[in-house]
Design a protein around this nucleic acid. Structure first.
Length: 581
RNA sequence: GCGCCCGUAGCUCAGUGGAUAGAGCGCUCGCCUCCGGAGCGAGAGGUCAGAGGUUCGAAUCCUCUCGGGCGCGCCA
């Protein structure tokens, strides 16, 4: 249960009953009525802003309206007290039995706690990574990969149907360069000397196996074929092998996408023409001449008529070309087709996860989608900022393996997938991220991964010890325990914090921000550790009290609750909870 | 020149219109020498870059200014 939503509904009911009784204006906009946590816990459990938001339209003073509403709310069985405070807040205190009931919910749901139906099963397509199939993934890709994967899991948890997708850019000039580069490696595999890799080709030694495969499959005859054919053969094989490489890299961080869509296939299937026809039908395509960009006019700028999309009708700065001067589609044109394809396959919402260097491209694609679907928010592009890899605060520059970038695989091999995934989610996507290889595996308070994992491991350890002492710690048994015995203020605080998890899931899913999970888990871990440490000062607060079975069992229920919520959160993040440290 | 993102404690960062703006690190002061371990507790520290505006209420929304990052025909 999202208890904030629960109390909001109660408030709306109270408002409706006041309206029915003629004590309140009938026609009110209730959309801004919110239930939220009071800043100060001493104010109660839930604060309502209803009176302040409605006062003007109702023609009443906020505090008077609040008093009226509070009196009505106080009659609800879940509400112990409804107090008016400040400018017109109504502070609700829940009945004592309300919180134990939440803990029972947690125990019953386990890892599924926080699952929501707000998504109403609506399909969301999350496209992430989509790195060019020209080499292994680097850490920047890794961030997008982890972000996209966690976002997909989060949306699923919030009740969406999710398609995890990868767009293969296998049609542009860069894959021809890849083919050329692979040919060179084939020459090498056949005994030729290739010397320095020419500038403009891919130098990485990950292409060596591609050259070998080409040599094995075709032998020297490969070079007897027309050059265009050579390149095509090398390109197609290289793309296949690079995709395998990329899929391996993704598997190493626990990612498996559902759909891999090929740009080449989109073009071949005539999807570009279809999408542009749809735009034309809406009068959004025309032939015109663009102004040169201000401030950085290219030397070879020529003014000429082009086929343009009316992007500026939808908030973009200028209209955008759909055809190159040689008549071929622009990347933008195929991208329109691809996004239209995703949409046409049944996803009402599209989410793209891109690197920040593509930020300048967002408006035009969003504009195209708005033009095609009529809806403003069909597409949400999440930009992931740069990742800097550090070791003890020092910038790590060169990769051993690839020559010019740090591969995702190198980082995973060093710190492990769980650490990588967690750290990648400790920043919101639009903030740059420093990834310190040394600190990531440090076992101390200031390492969030360790801190959260340690909390989970501690819980598991206590539960094991309790079981050794003969206490039944199965969730079913714990749910039967007398949770009213959890009277310490930190115990109560921990339950409330955990009861807030379903709301956090819904909010994070709504704004597409999985990092909120990581911050919540740190908060939860901190609260748990704090409670644990109280037991060091005051032995009566220790979780296991050998002479008090009922109290111990209640505390085990609390601990099991922490296990469930941390497990639920880590699952969204794709991180395995630790049983022991 | 234009667009997008960012600017919050000494540092790294949370905070999608609510009450006295939070966390970790660092600092100061206590405590602990402990396997309920890989420290614990408390405290100091703020012009939320600046100026206007909207609102009962703004770090949050709008406008402008300043500062930083990214990007800027047909490339992918």
């Amino acid at each position: 249960m999202n208890y904030f939503q629960h109390f909001r509904t109660i408030a709306l009911d109270a408002i409706a009953s006041l309206q029915a009784a003629g004590a309140l204006t009938a026609d009110l906009d209730l959309s801004r009525v919110a239930a939220e946590a009071p800043r100060d816990a001493s104010h109660g459990d839930v604060a309502l802003n209803a009176a302040m938001v409605l006062a003007k339209a109702a023609g009443q003073k906020p505090r008077e309206l609040a008093m009226l509403l509070a009196a009505r709310l106080a009659q609800h069985p879940d509400i112990e007290q409804a107090e008016v405070a400040g400018p017109g807040f109504i502070n609700l205190t829940a009945r004592a039995a309300f919180w134990p009931a939440r803990l029972r919910e947690i125990l019953a749901a386990g890892e599924a706690y926080g699952d929501s139906t707000v998504g109403q099963g609506k399909t969301v397509n999350v496209e992430y990574v989509s790195a060019n199939p020209t080499g292994p993934l680097h850490v920047g890709h890794g961030r997008g990969a982890v972000f996209g994967d966690a976002l997909a899991a989060l949306l699923e948890k919030a009740g969406h149907t999710v398609v995890r997708e990868y767009y293969i850019n296998d049609a542009g000039a860069q894959v021809d360069v890849l083919g050329q580069s692979a040919l060179l490696r084939a020459r090498e595999a056949l005994g030729g000397t290739i010397g320095e890799i020419p500038a403009g080709l891919y130098p990485g030694d990950y292409l060596v196996p591609v050259g070998q495969a080409l040599a094995e499959a075709h032998g020297a005859e490969l070079f007897a074929k027309p050059e265009a054919e050579q390149v095509a053969i090398a390109r197609d094989l290289a793309i296949r092998m690079m995709l395998d490489l990329i899929r391996d890299d993704l598997a190493a961080v626990g990612i498996r996408q559902d759909v891999f869509t090929s740009e080449r296939a989109i073009v071949a299937a005539g999807r570009v023409e279809a999408a542009l026809r749809a735009l034309e039908d809406k009068g959004l395509v025309y032939v015109g001449v663009l102004e040169p960009p201000k401030g950085m006019r290219p030397d070879d700028w020529e003014e000429r008529p082009q086929t343009l999309f009316r992007a500026s009708d939808f908030g973009d700065d200028v209209d955008r070309p759909l055809r190159k001067s040689d008549g071929a589609w622009t990347y933008f044109a195929t991208d329109i087709a691809y996004h239209f394809d995703k949409y046409s396959r049944g996803s009402e919402t599209l989410i793209d996860v891109w690197g920040a260097d593509h930020g300048g491209y967002v408006k035009r694609v969003a504009a195209a989608m708005q033009g095609l679907t009529g809806a403003r928010d069909t597409l949400d592009v999440k930009l992931c900022q740069l990742v800097r890899v550090l070791r003890d605060g020092e910038l790590v520059r060169m990769s051993k393996r690839s020559g010019d970038f740090i591969t995702l695989r190198e980082v995973v091999d060093e710190v492990g997938k769980d650490v990588l995934r967690f750290i990648m989610l400790t920043r919101k996507n639009d903030a740059p991220l420093d990834f310190d290889l040394a600190r990531a595996v440090d076992q101390s308070r200031d390492n969030p991964v360790f801190y959260v994992q340690y909390a989970h491991a501690r819980c598991r350890s206590v539960l094991r010890h309790a079981a050794d002492e003969g206490i039944d710690v199965t969730p079913a048994a714990l749910a039967q325990s007398d949770l009213g015995l959890l009277t310490d203020s930190d115990e109560a605080g921990l339950i409330k914090l955990m009861a807030g998890w379903p709301r956090l899931v819904e909010q994070a899913a709504e704004v597409h921000e999985p990092h909120r999970i990581a911050f919540y888990l740190q908060d939860l871990a901190a609260n748990f550790h704090q409670l644990w440490n109280k037991g060091r000062e005051d032995a009566t607060l220790r979780f296991i009290q050998s002479d008090q079975l009922a109290a111990t069992q209640a505390r085990m229920a609390l601990v099991q609750g922490v296990v469930a919520v941390i497990g639920s959160g880590l699952k969204v993040m794709g991180v395995e909870p630790a049983e022991a440290m």
